[in-house]
Design a protein around this nucleic acid. Structure first.
Lengths: 211, 211
DNA sequence: CGGGTGTCTTGACAGTTGTCAAGGAAAATC
DNA sequence: GATTTTCCTTGACAACTGTCAAGACACCCG
């Protein structure tokens, strides 16, 4: 009775016409991600999110139980766009130097074009240190990103004919650290942030391989 | 007229009895840091901060113009406790292995004992990607931390008789990345987070030196 | 065409937030 | 001891938040 939305969320999605339901959820998620990327997790209210969509603020509770459910859905939705980001780099490269150049170029490209999304990700990951409900989704994505980096690194090792000298977690931590630094520098307006990142990655990648 | 606090903040601190003024500011800052470390930047309200002190919520505007001025003051105040953290490691070590062990132990110690402060720092640094007013203070501290790491790394190189193979920024980014990862894992309850950090640091530090 | 269901808007609620003014208490000054 | 200055509390304000109920609109099936 109070539950038209709850029933909806619980029951299996209505067969024929209700990809529309999931479609709306994704539409909401995309608007939300844009607003979240602009304002950050804390300052992005449901009304602001709805304002940046073509709907009104009440509609969120028709498609999502909570603000948290929306956020978590957004995070997972966002993940789908990330995982394959460097697959072409891995697939198309035929030499270690080529892979390195392509990888660095791709890093710079996404840092430039999707800076709001990246800072949102770091925001959410940090917030998960304060809010347990976020932790599961964040941990899952973090593992996914670690795997993504690991595919690049191990392909790089393969092309170099040398084994990787560290664990997947360490390789991810190292590269994530310099990427995060470059993101902050770039958002702060540093004109050399992008080239610095390229230089750092070129300097770092050989070090992840064993002598 | 509306400005008893503004005058106060602007004019040079009253000579004799008014280290009390700065003392209160520091007292407020310490309470605020504790609350901020517990709740994070977004959820730490001025009332909550004041509740965790021995004062009432209105007093904040007597000593600080803004919430932001309080936060920035806290960040700078916090910095003072950080910079010298590894100085003893640098001063007391006589061999590369000894320095490495002492450094890793210190990292684990602070990760364990001051986890809320560390997640607050990462929170504030991330928030500075959304709020320009935070950026200046954050950038300043980040540079300070970079210098702190650089002193460790270059001392390590000195003891090893080999030059450092990367820039201060890169070395800081790398170590900060793995530390942040370990912090998240530790807060998430991973029982191996601390030993993993030790292992990663031991594996990583030799790589920052040139062959 | 009329009833019914899915979709969305509107308006309201209780709670919280930063901010500040008015005033009391305490301390310092004369 | 009286008065001024410093310090702190109290209470209020407007704005904003997540949440949800009541109802309007549109669409489809009988």
């Amino acid at each position: 009775m109070t539950t038209s939305t709850a029933q909806r969320a619980a029951r299996a999605p209505r067969r024929a016409p209700s990809e529309k339901y999931d479609e709306r959820r994704n539409q909401l998620a995309e608007s939300a991600l844009q607003t979240l990327g602009e304002l950050g997790y804390a300052r992005a209210s449901l009304r602001e999110i709805a304002n940046n969509s073509e709907f009104s603020h009440g509609v969120v509770h028709y498609y999502f139980k909570d603000k948290l459910e929306l956020i978590v859905y957004c995070v997972r939705y966002y993940k789908a766009q990330c995982v394959t980001r460097y697959d072409s780099v891995v697939a198309d490269s035929t030499s270690p130097e080529g892979l390195l150049d392509a990888f660095a170029a791709k890093l710079v490209e996404t840092l430039q074009d999707e800076a709001p999304m990246h800072r949102l990700w770091y925001d959410l990951r940090t917030q998960s240190m304060f809010e347990q409900p976020l932790r599961e989704a964040v941990t899952m994505i973090d593992k996914t990103l670690e795997g993504m980096i690991w595919r690049v690194v191990s392909r790089y090792a393969e092309l170099s004919g040398r084994p990787v000298a560290m664990t997947p977690a360490a390789a991810y931590g190292v590269l994530d650290g310099v990427f995060q630094q470059a993101l902050l520098a770039h958002i702060s307006g540093s004109p050399t942030a992008l080239e610095d990142l390229v230089a750092q990655v070129h300097g770092l990648m050989p070090l992840v391989l064993a002598a």
